[in-house]
Design a protein around this nucleic acid. Structure first.
Lengths: 164, 164
DNA sequence: CTGATTGCAAAGAATTTGCACTGCT
DNA sequence: AGCAGTGCAAATTCTTTGCAATCAG
C-alpha cells in the first residue's frame, strides 16, 4: 500500500475544507489500510492503537461524515453476524458482496453487467444514483449448494429450528 | 386481490408442515395484503386488529421463520428512516428498491438485466444464490439531480451539517 | 479567537431471549 | 398428550444525543 493511496482520503477531506482532528486522521487511516470489512467497534479498537483518546461517539460521527461525503460505503453483509454495519472505502467501480450463509465468508464481485444495470436504472427510472448496494446471500463455492448436509446456516440466528 | 393469492402463503406454510396459530395467520395475511413495505412495528399494529392477542416477540419470531422458509424478503431500504427492517412477500422475479434521499419514496425496479447479472454471479463465482438484495439510493425523477437546492437529504440523520 | 469537534454518560431504537403457560395437530 | 409456539418482561446490541470542555484553523 503506497503513501499516495494511504493519504487519498485525508487529502480529499482537506480539500473539502473538513477540519482534521487527530481522531479523524486515525480513523481514516484505519479504514483506508483495512483489508477486510470493519464494523464501528473494530474501527474503534484499531483507531485507539494510534490515538488512544477516541470515543465510540466520534467513530459514529466520523462515519456519518464520510458517508455524506460519499467517501465510504456502508454495508450490511446480509446481517450475517448481527445488525451492525461494515464500512469500506468507496471504489471507482462498485461491486456486489456475496455472503456465504454457511461459512460466513464475504466475497466481492464486480462486473460490467452491474455497471450496465446501474446505467439502465438511472435512465429507465430517471433516477440519479448516489449509492448502490448489492448483497447476495447463499452458499459459496467451498460450501456447495447447501442441500441437507445437516449443517446449520449462519442465517439461523433464532432458536426456531425447522423440522425438516 | 383474489382469494387464491391471499391464501398463497398460508397454504405454503401448511404444506411445509408448519404449525398454524392464529397469530401466524394474522401476520401472514397482513404481510400478504400489504401494498407498501412494512416494518415489524407496523406489522404488529396491523396484525393486532385481526388478532389482539399477539406480541412483538411473536412478530419477530414469525418473520424469522418466513425468512428461513424464503417466503419473504427483508429490506433495509437504505436505512432512510432508522435501522428497522421492512418485509415483502418474495416474488417470482426480484427487483431493486430505489430509495429517494430527498422525498423518501421507494420505487421498485425489475429488469432482465438484473436476472442476467444474478445468473452471471452464480456461474462466475460458483455461488448458489438464495437471497438477493439490490438497493439504490439517490434522487427520484420528481426530486431531480439534487444539486444545491438547499433541501435537506433524508440521509442526513445527524447534526453534522456540511458547511458547503 | 471562536465555532466545530470531542468525550462522557445517558438515552434511544430495534431486536432477542428465558421461562412458565397455552393451544395445535 | 406432548411439544411447538406464545406472552411477558427483562436483556442485548448497536447507535445517537446533550452538554460542557477542547482544539483546529
Amino acid at each position: 500500500m503506497n503513501l499516495s493511496k494511504r493519504r487519498a482520503l485525508l487529502d480529499e477531506l482537506v480539500s473539502k475544507g473538513v477540519r482534521l482532528t487527530s481522531q479523524r486522521r486515525a480513523l481514516v487511516e484505519v479504514i483506508q489500510e483495512a483489508n477486510e470489512h470493519l464494523d464501528a467497534a473494530s474501527l474503534l479498537d484499531l483507531a485507539r492503537r494510534r490515538e488512544p483518546n477516541i470515543d465510540r461517539a466520534t467513530v459514529y460521527r466520523t462515519l456519518e461524515l464520510l458517508k455524506k461525503l460519499r467517501l465510504i460505503d456502508e454495508l450490511d453483509l446480509m446481517h450475517l453476524y448481527g445488525e451492525k454495519h461494515y464500512y469500506e472505502v468507496k471504489s471507482e467501480r462498485n461491486h456486489a458482496h456475496l455472503a456465504c450463509f454457511r461459512c460466513g465468508r464475504i466475497e466481492e464481485y464486480s462486473s460490467p453487467l452491474f455497471e450496465r444495470l446501474k446505467a439502465e436504472i438511472a435512465k429507465q427510472a430517471d433516477f440519479t444514483i448516489k449509492v448502490t448496494r448489492l448483497e447476495v446471500g447463499g452458499n459459496c463455492r467451498a460450501c456447495g449448494s447447501g442441500v441437507s448436509t445437516g449443517q446449520e446456516d449462519r442465517e439461523s440466528r433464532t432458536a426456531t429450528a425447522l423440522h425438516q
